[in-house]
Simulated assay, not measured.
Amino acid sequence: MKMRSKNPRAWYALMLTLAASAASMKAWAQDGAAGIQEADSQVRSYFEPGTNLMYAIGAVLGLVGAVKVFQKWNAGDQDTGKVAAAWFGSCIFLVVVATVLQSFFGL
């Protein structure tokens, strides 16, 4: 079975089209790699402010939790220890997550 067309111009046009497609795919792949690098740099530029925001949210949660625990303690509620552990745990979780993410991504 012959792969070649009877018309040589059609054969050459097909080969030219395939070569042009391969060249454009290579150029597109290089632009894609540059785009990935640009996206990586942009995400890394937002990472440090994001971790600082997590620390700030943890601090605010700690203050709110301390006030709520103090109010329960003054009211004589029996579940003050559970509430204190829950608020303290949430603050520690936020700080640990921010620290682990920062060390994981090596920033």
Results as ranks from 00 to 15, higher is better:
residue 2 K to S: 12
residue 3 M to G: 04
residue 3 M to N: 10
residue 5 S to I: 03
residue 5 S to H: 11
residue 5 S to A: 12
residue 7 N to F: 13
residue 9 R to M: 15
residue 13 A to W: 14
residue 16 L to C: 09
residue 17 T to V: 11
residue 17 T to N: 10
residue 18 L to F: 09
residue 19 A to V: 03
residue 19 A to G: 07
residue 19 A to K: 07
residue 20 A to T: 08
residue 20 A to Q: 03
residue 22 A to R: 13
residue 23 A to R: 12
residue 23 A to D: 05
residue 25 M to T: 07
residue 25 M to S: 11
residue 27 A to H: 11
residue 29 A to C: 09
residue 30 Q to A: 14
residue 32 G to M: 05
residue 33 A to W: 14
residue 34 A to D: 11
residue 34 A to L: 08
residue 35 G to M: 12
residue 36 I to T: 06
residue 36 I to W: 15
residue 38 E to C: 03
residue 39 A to C: 04
residue 39 A to G: 04
residue 41 S to N: 11
residue 43 V to G: 03
residue 44 R to P: 00
residue 45 S to H: 08
residue 45 S to A: 14
residue 45 S to F: 12
residue 46 Y to P: 00
residue 46 Y to D: 06
residue 46 Y to V: 06
residue 46 Y to T: 04
residue 47 F to P: 00
residue 47 F to E: 04
residue 49 P to H: 05
residue 49 P to L: 06
residue 50 G to N: 09
residue 52 N to V: 08
residue 52 N to R: 15
residue 53 L to Y: 03
residue 53 L to N: 07
residue 55 Y to E: 07
residue 57 I to E: 02
residue 57 I to Q: 02
residue 57 I to R: 00
residue 57 I to S: 00
residue 59 A to F: 08
residue 59 A to K: 14
residue 61 L to G: 01
residue 64 V to W: 07
residue 64 V to I: 09
residue 65 G to M: 09
residue 66 A to V: 02
residue 68 K to C: 06
residue 71 Q to D: 11
residue 72 K to S: 08
residue 73 W to R: 11
residue 75 A to Y: 07
residue 76 G to A: 02
residue 78 Q to I: 10
residue 80 T to W: 06
residue 81 G to A: 05
residue 81 G to Y: 13
residue 82 K to H: 12
residue 83 V to Y: 05
residue 83 V to P: 01
residue 84 A to W: 04
residue 85 A to L: 15
residue 87 W to F: 15
residue 91 C to S: 05
residue 91 C to Y: 01
residue 92 I to W: 12
residue 93 F to H: 06
residue 93 F to A: 05
residue 93 F to Q: 03
residue 93 F to R: 00
residue 94 L to M: 04
residue 97 V to A: 14
residue 98 A to Q: 02
residue 99 T to Y: 11
residue 99 T to K: 08
residue 100 V to G: 01
residue 101 L to H: 02
residue 102 Q to Y: 06
residue 103 S to R: 13
residue 104 F to D: 02
residue 104 F to W: 11
residue 105 F to P: 01
residue 106 G to R: 03
residue 106 G to L: 00
residue 107 L to Y: 11
